Simulated scan of single mutants.
Amino acid sequence: MSEYRPLRVALLGAGSVGAEVARLLLEQKQELKSRVGAELELVGVAVRDLTTKREGFPKELLTTDVESLILGADIVIEVMGGIEPAKEYILRALNSGADVVTANKSLLATHGTELFNVAEQVGAQLYFEAAVAGAIPIIRPLRESLGGDRVKRIMGIVNGSTNYILDRMDKSGISLEEAMAEATELGYLEADPSLDVEGFDAAQKAAILATLAFHTEVPLDKVYREGITSITVAQMKAAQRDGYVIKLLAICEFLEADSSGPEGISV
């Protein structure tokens, strides 16, 4: 059996997600090798400040020289979040011939088409399964398994934080503020809670799903967004009396042409 050389992996970002990715790459090296067919060698972790104390990272892997790290990698994993400098780094990685893995939904929702086009032009791969419903395989089925089908509608809960909050309000009768405090203590909410409770996170994911499902670019600013901050205990009780529950849903629909107008997309 042929022995392939190790694949050099660069990790951009050393937050909680980055720490877990690094742990898996280091602790499950042999298992990953048996699955991939080649060793995945973590060659460096890009950080902004080397003096910041970080648990779980071998000190010798930390670096602020992002450009050299990217240029020496076969695979670049971006878990920094935000638009810049993540976009710049991903473009640099793709243009250097590296494949990229990212969970950056805000970047993909605003600049996804540009990144996908660059990846296609240079023959690199851009993977982003964790950007939407990380534990549920939805991205690859839309891109590959359903590529020849005509998807008409996608509907579902795509933000677990708001789902937890609404569930606590429904089952325990507590207020939105109390449920948010619980979610914050458990680490479920983003550092900026408005990204979750105002529906920004769900809107970004809906834009990505609609773009994939309907094979056209869906600009984020065209996605209708409504959060959960106006939901009250009284509304929860009223829904219960009528046999309903209140949920924050992402709904993407392909609208057929009819007498009311041409075909289009509703998100």
Rank of each mutant, 00 (worst) to 15 (best):
L7A: 12
A10R: 10
A10E: 12
L12K: 06
A14I: 09
L25I: 12
L26A: 10
L26N: 08
Q28K: 15
K29V: 15
Q30D: 15
E31C: 08
E31Y: 14
K33L: 08
A38L: 03
E39Y: 12
L42P: 12
G44W: 09
V45L: 11
T51N: 14
T51F: 08
K53E: 13
R54D: 04
G56V: 11
F57Q: 06
E60N: 13
T63N: 05
T64Y: 04
D65C: 03
D65S: 09
E67D: 10
S68Y: 00
I70Q: 02
L71K: 09
A73I: 10
A73G: 05
V76T: 04
V76Q: 06
M80Y: 00
G82L: 05
P85C: 03
A86Q: 07
L91R: 10
R92I: 03
A93Y: 06
L94F: 09
N95W: 05
V101F: 07
A103Q: 02
A103P: 01
K105Y: 07
S106H: 07
L108C: 01
G112H: 07
T113W: 07
E114T: 04
E114D: 04
A119G: 09
E120Y: 07
A124I: 04
A124F: 02
F128D: 02
E129D: 15
A130L: 13
V132M: 01
P137W: 01
I139T: 04
R140Y: 00
R143W: 01
E144L: 08
L146M: 07
G147R: 07
G148S: 04
D149F: 10
R153D: 01
M155Y: 05
V158R: 09
N163V: 00
I165R: 04
D170L: 11
G173Y: 06
A181D: 14
G187F: 07
S194N: 06
E198I: 03
D201A: 15
A203H: 06
T211F: 02
V218Y: 00
V218T: 00
D221G: 01
K222W: 07
I228K: 04
S230L: 06
I231N: 02
T232Y: 10
A234C: 08
Q235L: 11
A238L: 13
A239Y: 09
Y244F: 11
A250D: 10
I251E: 14
C252R: 01
F254S: 11
F254H: 12
E256P: 08
D258K: 09
S259T: 05
G261K: 02
G261W: 02
V267T: 15
